[in-house]
Simulated assay, not measured.
Amino acid sequence: MTTTIEPEAPPRAAIVAQGVARSFGDVRAVDNATLTVQAGSVTALIGPNGCGKTTLMLMLAGLLRPNEGTISVGGNDPRTDAAAVRGSIGWMPDQLGSWDNLTCLQTLTLIGQAYRIPKAESRARGDALLARVHLEEFAQRPARVLSRGQKQRLSLARALMHDPEVLLLDEPANGLDPRSRIELRDLVRELAAEGRAVLISSHVLAELDEMVDDAIFMSKGRTLGDEASAMVAEAKTKYRIDALDRDLLISTLRGSSVPVEETPTGVVVRIDGDTNAAEALAWLVSKGVRVHRFGPVGSALEQTYMAMNEERR
């Protein structure tokens, strides 16, 4: 019997924006922005305050109309089929507008009913989501008692109530304590593994490195595209190596014509890829260099952001 192995389906673009622009009077908030977010992936939207990130996300959510360009979300155009787009998107704004006198469960139940989900099902979904974001103890308590970080978690649960295929998360880590940020990172990865497309705007760049599959940088309303991708790729090649005998480390590397940037405790070198990194470490150890620190210099996204010196706010 012959078994036919079907080729894997190519990734499906859940969000596509081409040449999108939006002005407010004389202010060009977004100018020729282009991006693609694949289903089952997490993409970061990164840039300084005022660069147009939130305006772009509002257009993707169908809450603002672009002056120029095209947008497709789940295969639908928010300008011509806004209802379909809203049904496919879970929107988590930077700040949650809540009904302070409603309990957390009542809030989620009401949101579910707004999406025409029967009340009993909405309540069951609300209970499950409160547990998922670790707010089950607040199910019967009014939203006004929640801290800033807890309101952020309630906002995420609210965005998930109608089981959307696309998530737009605007600064979801604001107000979260360290444990909650780790839990958010794990939850976002789980949501992508379920097949959702996640676009996340955040200034917590070191944590985004472990969360995202791709990153889109914005500056002065424009997405930077290949320019920023090349900067991220270059940043990922920078490795910091520290050894107990710094002089031996430097002489060993230079003796093999390896370009090095000296630091007070060791060197920074460029290594392309995990395989080459593993081989470089093994080679150093074989030469008698007692390495006590070996790894990437830091967040590749953070390094790229800092290199974007055309805009400082």
Rank of each mutant, 00 (worst) to 15 (best):
A173P: 04
N67V: 07
E183R: 09
V16D: 03
D94L: 04
F294T: 02
S202I: 02
V42L: 11
P93G: 07
S72D: 08
R196T: 10
P172F: 11
L169R: 03
E310P: 00
P10N: 07
R254T: 14
D272P: 01
T43Q: 15
L60H: 12
V145S: 13
G74A: 01
V258W: 14
T252W: 06
L146Q: 10
V188S: 14
R181Y: 12
G225N: 12
L45E: 02
G112E: 05
I5A: 09
L191H: 04
L58F: 11
E279M: 08
T265S: 05
G298L: 07
G50W: 13
Q18F: 04
V297P: 00
F24Y: 15
D226L: 12
M161Y: 12
Q152Y: 10
D214Y: 15
T80L: 12
A173T: 12
F138A: 14
P7F: 05
G288K: 02
T275K: 08
E137M: 04
A277D: 03
L253K: 08
K287M: 02
A233M: 06
A33C: 11
E302D: 12
S257F: 15
R313Y: 15
N76E: 13
I117P: 02
L45H: 10
E136D: 15
Q150K: 09
A9W: 04
G87D: 11
K53Y: 10
K119A: 15
L64W: 14
D177M: 10
D26I: 11
W91T: 09
E190L: 13
A307S: 06
E121D: 14
I111R: 06
T252R: 01
S98C: 05
I46E: 01
M211W: 04
V269C: 06
P118E: 10
A124I: 05
V267F: 05
S286H: 06
S229P: 00
Q150Y: 15
V188C: 13
R270Q: 14
L253N: 03
R28Y: 09
V212D: 07
E171N: 10
W91K: 02
A307D: 05
